[in-house]
Design a protein around this nucleic acid. Structure first.
Length: 327
DNA sequence: AACTCCAACAACCGCATCGTA
DNA sequence: GTACGATGCGGTTGTTGGAGT
């Protein structure tokens, strides 16, 4: 048995579409609409799978599609919705005029994920990395925590190396300069040349292990220093690490100093649930439509309550976006 | 100039869900 | 209620062009 193929693969063309094929498909759909994708390629004179035609149409040829760069507002919308509905790309895309799920997904994977990681936020949970570490620490005994932290470090390593090396993020040289100016040589500047990766990873490992074994570490919002310089409960100091590592371990100043460095303003939930009623209320307000019941994304209609989790990061949106009738 | 690397995006694949007989 | 074809969706892979070496 097995699954019936959507079309006979031997007789269909694959790969990039040519302008001629695009023209054939567009003009056929303009005349006959998009009923029965299986018949469309045959009737339109295309040697393509119906599924391939559908994708080409929905992702590229549709006249109402917007091509080109995502605006800041669109990015904010994506991040905000992703923090609530996760990888429901079609649902997210439905809130952005002229964008497809494929567009949104690609933009998320190539840009936004890295952007969030760079801000010290886990793109999956939308929480600060340090926050996640702290949550692990609250639920596990120390030996387990250390191993888990090591495992987590492995997961994040690629993103961090990317940020630390490829993007050449500034390593908080100002702290180094300050230390030097004050004659403090006990906290040497990190070399950005020699064995940069190894040094950094070792420091992260050390910092994580210390943080996880330090009971006073928790809760994290208690020790996040808005200056990002020192933390009395932290075994070292945040300034021992590059800025992007600070983001990972100490929470970046952009998170605690609203609007200081972050490209987006945000309010952060503390703990495993949103703590301020007005924030939570506002998200519900944004998600519920005027009747407070359902919202529609493409064909899907789901109860908001079924997809709404209380773990969230709330992104401040321009007031115009709040006027989106669906949100 | 040639080569490598990487980001961006298009397209494919297989599973899930829907609609209908 | 069930079977089956059609369509939607999300994950993944492939391709391309530009930047860096």
């Amino acid at each position: 048995m097995g699954r019936i193929p959507c079309c006979e693969k031997d007789n269909v063309k694959r790969g990039q579409w040519t302008p001629e094929e695009d023209n054939k498909l567009s003009s056929y759909i303009a005349q006959h609409g998009t009923r029965n994708w299986r018949l469309i390629p045959k009737n339109a004179g295309l040697q393509r799978c119906g599924k391939s035609c559908r994708l080409r149409w929905t992702n590229y040829l549709r006249p109402d599609l917007k091509h080109g760069q995502f605006s800041d507002t669109e990015e904010q919308t994506i991040v905000k919705l992703h923090s609530v509905v996760g990888n429901r790309w079609s649902l997210i895309a439905a809130q952005l005029t002229g964008r497809t799920d494929n567009d949104v997904k690609n933009h998320w994977n190539t840009k936004l994920k890295k952007k969030l990681s760079g801000m010290g936020i886990d793109p999956v949970t939308h929480k600060p990395f340090s926050h996640l570490m702290a949550e692990i620490a609250t639920t596990l005994a120390t030996p387990q925590v250390t191993h888990l932290a090591e495992a987590a470090l492995g997961c994040f390593k690629d993103e961090m190396l990317h940020l630390l090396t490829k993007k050449r993020i500034d390593f908080q040289l100002q702290h180094c300069n300050t230390n030097v100016a004050q004659g403090n040589t006990s906290s040497p500047c990190i070399s950005t040349k020699h064995d940069e990766n190894d040094d950094t990873i070792e420091k992260i490992k050390l910092g994580l292990s210390r943080a996880m074994q330090e009971p006073g570490m928790l809760p994290p919002n208690k020790i996040w220093d808005s200056t990002g310089v020192t933390s009395p409960n932290f075994a070292g100091t945040c300034s021992d690490f590059p800025s992007s590592v600070n983001a990972f371990l100490c929470c970046p100043s952009s998170l605690s100093n609203e609007g200081a460095l972050s490209p987006w303003n945000q309010s952060m939930c503390t703990g495993s649930t949103c703590t301020t009623g007005d924030q939570q209320g506002r998200l519900h307000e944004m998600l519920d439509n005027e009747d407070g019941e359902e919202f529609e994304g493409g064909k899907e209609i789901r109860k908001v309550s079924s997809i709404f989790n209380t773990d969230c990061v709330l992104w401040d949106m321009p007031s115009d976006d709040l006027m989106n009738p669906i949100i």
